[in-house]
Amino acid sequence: MAVTDANGGLSIRLLCAADADAYQAIRVAAATHDSASIHADAAEIAALGRDAIQRQIESGDAQRALGAFIEGELVGVAALRRDTRAKIRHRATVQGVFTRPECRSRGVARSLMQAVLDEAAKLPGLLSLELAVHAENGPAKALYQAFGFRRVGLIPGAVMLDGRCLDEVLMQRPLAFSSPAAVPGPIPNCDGYALIEAAPDVDTYRRLRAESGLSPKTEEAARRGLAGTLFSVLLRHGGETVGMGRLIGDGGGFYQVVDIAVLPAHQGRGLGKRIMAAIRGHIDRELPVSAYVSLIADGDARHLYAQFGFEPTAPRSEGMALFKR
């Protein structure tokens, strides 16, 4: 397979034996730059022989290794690996998703993930995709969530790095979809609305903000902001996304609820409450004790947020903001 983006000069294809040296080099870079996310360290990867590297990228029924190229240079990788034992061959693991730091914010990782899903759809009998991600890697978790992966567990102390035990989040996605627009896990309701755990794309995000009366965001601001999503839900009706809500933050001490939006034609039906209930559920399950979660309440929206435990900070503190124009 080969996919080319004519606008950005980005191409995605399966790796082959001739790519072994470039693949090894980018894996060393991954272990150096994102050491918490790579189980092998840089020295271990560098010590592997060429034959071992070639076996890691050889395409077959049990694996696919994909590369993202810009002007002929390998700038990103991702792999799909499958256990061939009869009882678990319906499952595969997404591994080693990495983009060179200087090439980030250009859609490389998103293109790689779509290519992984496309390749997975070609493997007979494959029903489930799984992955593990460093618990503090907010952008990576947001990326996977946008492609329909949902958290299914946590491994405390999964990785030992510099004397510290780091947690990993386990995520899973049923392989019944070939596009991030058709994500799994809807929670249907009798009135035809469904809430799903997923982040909006840039166009949907900007549309929902503008049409629901929130301040508009530029395309660049939307792209950068969505990359930092920690948790997000979308409200769907009749195949259309009509509402959303997000949680952003540093992944540890401070968070903010943002982008609670429902299109005017769908307001007045308690849909904002459903969105907030999903976000509050995530806060209760995932955020550490002592986390500070804030939001800005416009007008009567304060009554909605109060139902979920949010209280005015005044008089002990007063909210302040700066809007760059």
Rank of each mutant, 00 (worst) to 15 (best):
I38L: 11
L48P: 00
A52P: 01
I38Y: 14
L66W: 00
S37Q: 09
G72W: 13
K87H: 13
S105F: 00
H39Y: 14
R89P: 02
H134A: 13
D83H: 13
A79K: 15
R55P: 00
Q114C: 08
A120M: 09
S37E: 10
E130M: 10
A140S: 08
I70D: 05
S111A: 15
R106A: 02
A68M: 10
L117R: 08
L66N: 05
G72F: 12
D51M: 00
V75E: 03
A68C: 06
Q54R: 15
A42L: 13
D41L: 03
G49F: 02
V94M: 00
V116K: 01
D51S: 12
S111K: 05
F98A: 02
L117C: 09
A65W: 10
G96W: 03
A46G: 07
M113A: 01
A52H: 08
Q63I: 09
D51N: 05
Q56T: 09
A42T: 10
A62I: 10
S111L: 01
D61T: 14
T32P: 08
A132C: 06
A78E: 00
N137H: 15
I53C: 05
P139V: 04
D61G: 15
R82K: 10
L48C: 09
I57N: 08
C103L: 03
V75A: 02
R104I: 00
S37M: 03
A46W: 11
V75G: 03
R100W: 02
V97M: 12
V116M: 04
G96Q: 14
F98V: 07
L112C: 00
S59R: 11
A109Q: 01
E136P: 00
A92L: 06
A78W: 06
D34V: 12
R110A: 12
E71S: 15
H90E: 03
R106K: 15
F69M: 06
A121M: 14
A43C: 08
P139W: 07
G49P: 04
A121N: 12
H39S: 13
Q114I: 02
E130K: 11
L129K: 07
R82D: 09
A79L: 13
K87D: 04
A120I: 05
A65L: 03
D41P: 02
A46I: 07
M113P: 04
Q114W: 10
P139T: 05
A132S: 13
E73R: 15
E71K: 13
